[in-house]
Design a protein around this nucleic acid. Structure first.
Lengths: 147, 147
DNA sequence: CGATAAAAAGACCTAATTGTCTGAATTATA
DNA sequence: TATAATTCAGACAATTAGGTCTTTTTATCG
């Protein structure tokens, strides 16, 4: 199998979109997020710890605690999350795995892969969480996953 | 970490390009391929067995044996190899991992991911091994990887 | 202050991927 | 027919990713 982002990263991206919809100042409970998105909660916990260390999300302990965005949704892009969880190394990696491949010494699919990377970069860079979560607004079903 | 193709698949793709450059009717030795590409030879063996079962490569046992393409390089595309080794399931998979995501119910990056997929599909579909290996011709260094 | 509710941390388990090893089966050729 | 060269097959080891569990720490409320 092959995926673009790891499972951890997918979970992180889903969770950040969930948090983006949360009313300002009201942290969401781990349990609430993991139940809604149908993610194993201990695992999500670890993922959110990573994002917390990177200050992309803020955590509050104790009762009335929970998780919230660490800064304004206008200042967060998906690439922040991808970088924190997976790194972006796959974007530097020859798609055929030739270590010597590069602009000077391109593999046979180098130009096409380069085009694809631009699209992917754009996908995770261009829009902020603010914009993305507005688009998500009419499609809440995505965040409410069937068990 | 995240990769588009698995390591096995990268090895398979490299090996098939190696075989495409082989003079017609002269099978290449496993050892020769793995040494040249700097791939663990037992591992490459397994990968080539997979391709052999799919008749993308042909194997010849005994002395003077080795591996060769299973059919004309004009009838092989990289997607044949990807499908045989990794499957192409990642192309059906929502990049954010939302199970309900689809054209009817798109996630916030669905259109961009769709564009990226078209480019990737094109990358592994459009050109045949025949064309690709011609492009590779002046760049033999890619196939001769430093230890 | 004490009880409680929450996240943090880290140990631990499981499954998949990657890589290694050994021994067979097959074949050409001397 | 013996031998050497080769692939085939499967067991096994190491590493990494994915997932679970338990304990510790911290904040809040009564």
């Amino acid at each position: 199998m092959s995926l673009i982002f790891s499972k951890s990263c997918e979970y992180a991206l889903q969770a950040i979109l969930y948090l983006a919809r949360q009313p300002q100042g009201e942290p969401a409970l781990l349990r609430e997020i993991s139940d809604s998105l149908n993610i194993p909660h201990h695992f999500l916990n670890k993922v959110l710890q990573t994002l917390t260390r990177d200050e992309i999300v803020a955590s509050f302990k104790g009762s009335n605690g929970g998780f919230a965005l660490g800064r304004s949704p206008k200042e967060i892009t998906l690439s922040d999350i991808v970088r924190a969880v997976d790194g972006e190394s796959f974007l530097d990696h020859c798609v055929l795995g030739f270590p010597a491949c590069g602009d000077k010494n391109p593999c046979p699919v180098h130009p096409q892969w380069k085009r694809a990377k631009v699209v992917i970069q754009d996908m995770i860079h261009r829009k902020t969480l603010f914009e993305l979560s507005k688009e998500l607004d009419p499609k809440l079903e995505l965040l409410q996953q069937p068990k």
